[in-house]
């Protein structure tokens, strides 16, 4: 496989991103390395072909945002909004991720080996997210679809106003948000969890060690008893 290396100390990020946005036929199957990312914002955003981009260090805000098809590996940490609105493909953060990781992601897989900050998986729309560490408060707020696996602990207000996304937590949950409740893990959910653990490099972790959370669906329809609250 061809490997092309870019050094952000020498080449402007805009040129690198434009190159990575080129014609898919010419890019498919290629791999790229980005040296000296040094926390720059918007590295490898909007990719839409079958490439593998490795970021050799810490990335800034919105890294690999809107990703389609491509695989992006960040060897350091990621700033706010990593893989936000991802449609497909795989984004793998080997360090920690800041706030709003995987926000509104529609599809694909986001793997974070370390911790994730606040509001991880906010408004998740169908992607899968696996966090090796813990997540901050208000994670999975209004998460609509997709699966969210947390190997560590979760902060306050997990899954507030959640729709149909599934949350699996192995550690402690500081508090659940409105309308989020413990679910009994059925065979289908267990299979989803087992597959995601395998895909994200956690084959030894037992799915039985997780608790599943989801929507109690009490906020789906207007309740006349709540009229005074508006």
């Amino acid at each position: 496989m061809d490997n092309i290396s870019f050094d952000l100390d020498k080449k402007p990020l805009r040129e690198v991103n434009q190159l990575l946005h080129g014609d898919a036929a010419g890019l498919n199957g290629k791999s790229f390395t980005i040296e000296n990312p040094n926390g720059a914002h918007s590295i490898a955003v909007g990719l839409k072909s079958d490439v593998h981009v490795t970021i050799k260090g810490h990335a800034g805000y919105y890294a690999a945002g809107m990703n389609q098809i491509a695989k992006v590996t960040i060897e350091g940490s990621a700033g706010s909004g990593v893989a936000e609105n991802m449609m497909s493909g795989v984004v793998h953060v080997k360090g920690f991720a800041s706030n709003a990781a995987g926000a509104t992601a529609n599809g694909g897989l986001l793997i974070i080996d370390g911790d994730a900050g606040l509001r991880c998986a906010i408004a998740l729309k169908g992607a899968d997210i696996v966090v090796g560490g813990s997540v901050g408060s208000f994670s999975a707020f209004m998460a609509q679809a997709g699966n969210f696996v947390i190997l560590g602990d979760a902060g306050e207000g997990l899954g507030d106003s959640i729709y149909e996304a599934k949350i699996f937590v192995r550690g402690k949950v500081k508090s659940l948000g409105a309308d989020c409740e413990v679910k009994t893990m059925d065979a289908e959910s267990k299979k989803i969890l087992t597959d995601l653990l395998a895909k994200s490099g956690h084959v030894d972790v037992k799915p039985e060690s997780f608790t599943q959370y989801g929507s109690a669906r009490t906020l789906y329809h207007f309740h006349v008893d709540n009229a005074g609250a508006y």
Partner: peptide, 27 residues
């Protein structure tokens, strides 16, 4: 308490550096 504004810390044997973003610690 809502973590609305960022910060990142680098602890090293020689120094402790704090910045809003890693961009300022990279060098």
């Amino acid at each position: 308490p809502f973590g609305c504004k960022p910060a990142i810390i680098a602890e090293h044997d020689d120094y402790v550096a704090i910045a809003s973003e890693f961009r300022s610690l990279a060098h």
